[in-house]
Amino acid sequence: MTMTVNGNTVSIPNDPRVSLLDFLREHLHLSGTKKGCNQGACGACTVLVDGQRVLSCLTLAVQCSERDITTIEGLSSDGVLHPLQQAFIEHDGFQCGYCTPGQICSAIGMLEEMRRGVPSQLTGDLCAEVVAFDRDEVRERMSGNLCRCGAHNGIVDAIEDVFREAAE
């Protein structure tokens, strides 16, 4: 059994207890994905699985057979940062940097959800094909990604800066 991680094909571990998070961090040494609670409460471990944002601590590696995984390490290429990574720096969307990879992966997944018209609790028009970009929509949809340093304003600014036009 294999999965693809940032474009590379890798074998899935034999121990079925290994979470996707621990597989990334301890087996593949991709420690950009963070472990903040290991119980799905903080979002620090968010990665993209086939383009959708997923909590890798609540996902077993063996569930990811034939899946395409993108981690924070897969967002920049040849040293060129993803525009959202650059915007996080410009808007000071982090302090300690521990929740940051999860926030960035989550925001990328969130954009696709809004483009697909997936409503949130705050969405007025449940039938809209594309959810209109709005700072409170972002706040609601990013609320699963905790930040204790309090970089929330900068994170929303960065997401708005890069995604407002893309979303509409």
Binding site: L30, T33, I72, E73, L75, L81, F88, E90, T100
Partner: peptide, 21 residues
């Protein structure tokens, strides 16, 4: 001035205590 460790943190490349091998 933007954080000088900003790029490392945004890339997930800053190494924390549980990430030394």
């Amino acid at each position: 001035v933007s954080r000088i460790d900003g790029p490392l943190k945004a890339k997930g490349a800053a190494r924390f205590a549980a990430e030394f091998r």
